[in-house]
Structures are given as C-alpha cells and as structure tokens.
Nucleic acid binder design. Sequence first.
DNA 1: CGAGGATGGTCAACATTGATGACAAGCGTA
DNA 2: TACGCTTGTCATCAATGTTGACCATCCTCG
Lengths: 200, 200
Amino acid sequence: MSTRPRAARPRQPAAVTRSTIFDAARELFGESGFDAVGIRAVAARAGVDAALVIRHFGSKEQLFLETMTVDLPAVRVMEGPLDGMGRAIVEHVVCLPSTRTGALAVTALAALFRASDRDEVRRNLRSTIDEVFARPLVRRLTGGDAEVRAHLVAAQLGGLLTSMHVVQDPVLLAADPQAVVARYGDAIQQLISEGEGAAA
Amino acid sequence: MSTRPRAARPRQPAAVTRSTIFDAARELFGESGFDAVGIRAVAARAGVDAALVIRHFGSKEQLFLETMTVDLPAVRVMEGPLDGMGRAIVEHVVCLPSTRTGALAVTALAALFRASDRDEVRRNLRSTIDEVFARPLVRRLTGGDAEVRAHLVAAQLGGLLTSMHVVQDPVLLAADPQAVVARYGDAIQQLISEGEGAAA
DNA sequence: CGAGGATGGTCAACATTGATGACAAGCGTA
DNA sequence: TACGCTTGTCATCAATGTTGACCATCCTCG
C-alpha cells in the first residue's frame, strides 16, 4: 500500500462549495484584511482543501477582489435633492455601518484601501470609487468644473472613510457622529453647490 | 576543501553600510511599495547580502517604517495665517511633489497608506498623520469642536492625497492644479474657519 | 609580535506562503 | 461494464522573510 485511500468528502455541486468558500473568505478578509488571511485559513474555515480554493477562484487576489465588493448603497442618496446631499452622504458613511449591508460595504472598501499595494487591487479600487461615488455625482452636477468637483467629493468621502476605518483616528471615532455629519457634510456640500451658478 | 573561502567585501563601518541599505530601500519602496520589493532586491541594490539587511534593521517591516518617513513640510503652512490656509495646504499636497523633499514626503505617505494592511504600519500611519496634520492644526484652532474639526481637515487631506497618489484618479491627475487648489482648498477653509466665532 | 575579542560579513538552512499538476473518487450515461 | 466529466486531495514547487552558525578583518593589550 503505497497510497492510502484518499478521504474524499461527500460530493457536492460546485456552486455550493464555491459559495461556502466565498462566505468564509468574506468573513475572514473583512475581519483581518488581505495580508493576514492565508489561503489555508480560508480553506480550513470552509472545511475544504487549500488547492480547491485556488481551483475555484484562480488566485488569492482574485478571491479577495470577488468577495470584497461594494454593493453601492451610497448611490441612492445621490439621486435625491442636491440640497443637503452633503450631510446625507456623510451620514451614510458614518452611521450606516450599523446596518448589515452598510457594514459590509464599508468593511470591503476599507479592506480594498488597505490592500492597495497590489496593482490589481488598486485598479479595482479606482473603478469601484468611480462607479459608486464619482460617476453618480457627475451625472447630477452642472456648471464649471462639474467633473472635477465630483471627483473631489469622492476624494473627501474616501478621506473620511479611510480616516475612520483604516487609520482609525481615535478622535473621529470618539466624536459625536452628529457633529461629524454636520461639519464634514457642509464642507462637501460647498463642493457640490459652489459652481452650480457660475465658475470661479 | 569542504568550505571555499568566503568572499568578504572590504570592511566598512556599520553606519556606512546601514546608510547604503537605507538609501536603496528608500528608492525601491518609494517606487514599488512594500509588497513588491523583496528584501533580496534591496540587498542586491545595496550590494550586500540579504541577511545583513535584517541584521541592521531587524525586519523588513522595520526597514520600511524607518525609510518611509514624512519630514513634515506641511507643518510650516499651518503656522501661517488662518486666512487662506486651506488653499495653502492643498497647494503643498498637489504642487509640492515637484520639489525634492516634497516628493519624498508624499511618496512616503502614499506608501504607508498602501501598506496599511499591516498593524504596525497602520499604527505608524496614524501617529504620522496626527503629528504632521492634526496636532499642528489643533493648536491653531479655537471655538466649538476645534479638535474634531482639525482631525476632519486631516481626513480631507488624506483623502486628496490617497485619491491622487494611491487610487490615482485620472480625472484629478489630469485636472488643472489651480482649480483643485481653489475648490478643495475652500472646502477645507470652511472647516477651518467655520466654528471660530461660535459653535453650530 | 601574538593572543583575544569585538565588529562586519557570508552562507546554508528553516518555516510559511501562494500556486501547480498528477491522481483518486464519485456519478451519470451509453 | 466501461467511458468520461466533475469534484476533491495530496505531494510538491518556487519564493519569501528570518535565523544561527560560521568566517574574516581590525583594534587592543600584554
């Protein structure tokens, strides 16, 4: 007997195992980020061999990108009235993490930022921000540098998000959410409505 | 002859080799980030054995943190007048990369952001931002939520910096620097001067 | 001069990582 | 039964950061 019989779990349709791995990866990546989570850890949590993870997703990076997606919750706000949109958006970034999908979105975006050392992740981050933040806004704004202003708003949002969920600035985390919404929201609002009538 | 004589470069004082490694690491990390640069690459560039790098700096992470430092150029601006400080700060983030030390600072901060998946790097990033951006501002601001406002400004700056040098938003990179300075600077200015007279 | 120790440097190895390819086992079908 | 597709496992690879044993050079003191 040179080869003992291989264990072989009860067979399952590919979609099921894939989904199991997906869930395990989503949780682990969300908790600890790309770097700290090995492919073997994901496999263990899913009750599966490490090689299977690669077979289903191609690479660890691909798995990461597929799990850490933002199911655009912010885009709704940007279809509302321009007045007060600044505060509304900030509220979605600051307060929304209490909801289920909101927390996922914020967690995923933060995880993307933290892993942005990899080219592919950086590309993904770029297009994600463009889709979720910048483009919806560009469609709403008019006047002078509408496009630039929209992307500057996206920059502001990214700044607040990274400050709170990547850098984890203790002052901001401990601050009164209402104050943050008011202050930062108004700063964004200025960028939104500043050039609507005429350019500077 | 089981052991051939070991090569042994001409001996040098420790400080010199350390400095050589330091320079090599600074360049490579600045160009390609933490992840893409192996310790052996740094060693090769410095003309040194890989083990020596570790012996001098303890670990790759430590080397990274020691090389990617921000020699606070922004702090000068924050000692000037509060009026127009917003635009002045943004100018230092957007236009300053043409100077030598400015480029280093921006590059280093961007590299820290991109490698923020590691706990130690994140800690370093947090205190760096606090020292370079937040604390100097806290000292200048008065009124309502002076501290919170200062940290929100830091968040805005981090947002612009990551948008341009991490995410590399093509719209912002192609935009007229003057427009960016004006728009974003004014948004920051609002956060600076908003609560100076009375709290909301 | 020569013994001894500190200092500077090299090499071979280790554990862990992501990834690959050969192969086994289940399951449907002809 | 025999074939073939899908699903799963194992052994293995190359590359990574890191370590410890080992040289080699220089300074110093007897």
